[in-house]
């Protein structure tokens, strides 16, 4: 019989699902074990043991145990490190936090430690919490997340022949290959999206700047649309579908933004 091992980790709540009379099934992104799924018995009744620490987007110290590496972990307790109250108090911030959490859930692997991804999500939730997020920062987050997950798109050179961006006229983004193509290599591709060099240069710059400087980067209407299109298309290609929270965010922004 495998013995039950206990662990204490930092974790971000990605998803919460009510189960049975009083339990909750949760998905976390942890610093030590990557994505982790667990059950918190009696979580909907016990205000003391879990004390609001299982709400989506919360950064917590999580105590859990499990047998082996498969199956659901048993969540034994959790303490909040950060609630990100600023996110909960604003609809746009909540919707963006949902999008970045869903992205992190998709691009993390159960049981596989990915500290850069964990730190990126924690830092970006903190950034959203302060209310300084912009459309540009959402794209920069997507780029950083793809990099941390090992799917960084190639934006600085032709993905086929290696010609540098500076030497490419009318670059096109190939969603299947995850990179730009020069005019010579982009012949009649089914998933090619024209993208301006200015948009690509802004994305490359935003990929590496500090969070502090992100709010200062503005995107023109064209850049915003191109950035959304190429990264959205690439992410859809990798995940196989549109992310649910992205659809809800788009719907609310379109119909309910004053």
């Amino acid at each position: 019989m495998t013995s039950r091992s206990s662990h204490k980790v930092r974790a971000i709540v990605l998803r919460s699902l009510d189960y049975g009379e009083s339990d909750r099934i949760l998905t976390f992104l942890t610093d030590e074990f990557g994505k982790l799924k667990g059950i918190a018995k009696g979580a909907r009744r016990s205000r003391r043991r879990f004390a609001n620490a299982l709400e989506p987007f919360s950064l917590t110290t999580l105590l859990f145990s499990r047998r082996g590496r498969g199956g659901l972990a048993l969540i034994e307790g959790s303490d909040v490190i950060r609630h990100f109250a600023g996110i909960r108090e604003d609809l746009d911030r909540t919707l963006v936090a949902a999008c970045v959490s869903e992205l992190a859930e998709h691009f993390s692997v159960e049981g596989k430690k990915n500290l850069p991804l964990f730190d990126l999500l924690a830092d970006f939730l903190d950034f959203i919490d302060t209310g300084r997020m912009t459309e540009a920062s959402e794209r920069f987050f997507e780029l950083r997340l793809l990099k941390a997950a090992g799917f960084e798109p190639v934006l600085d050179r032709c993905v086929t022949c290696g010609t540098l961006l500076e030497g490419i006229e009318a670059p096109q983004f190939d969603c299947r290959e995850g990179g730009i193509r020069c005019a010579r290599c982009a012949v009649n591709g089914p998933d090619f999206i024209p993208v301006s060099a200015g948009t690509l240069r802004t994305l490359l710059m935003g990929r590496d700047i500090d969070f502090e400087r992100m709010p200062r980067v503005g995107l023109s209407g064209l850049m915003a649309r191109e950035g959304r299109e190429i990264l959205g298309c690439f992410i859809r290609h990798l995940t196989g579908r549109e992310l649910r929270s992205v659809s809800v965010l788009a719907e609310i922004r379109k119909r309910y933004t004053p």
């Binding site: 990605l14 919707l95 659809s247 809800v248």
Partner: peptide, 11 residues
């Protein structure tokens, strides 16, 4: 209730 992660929007 709105639950973007489950695809539940205003509609």
């Amino acid at each position: 209730a709105l639950a973007p992660l489950d695809g539940i929007g205003p509609d």
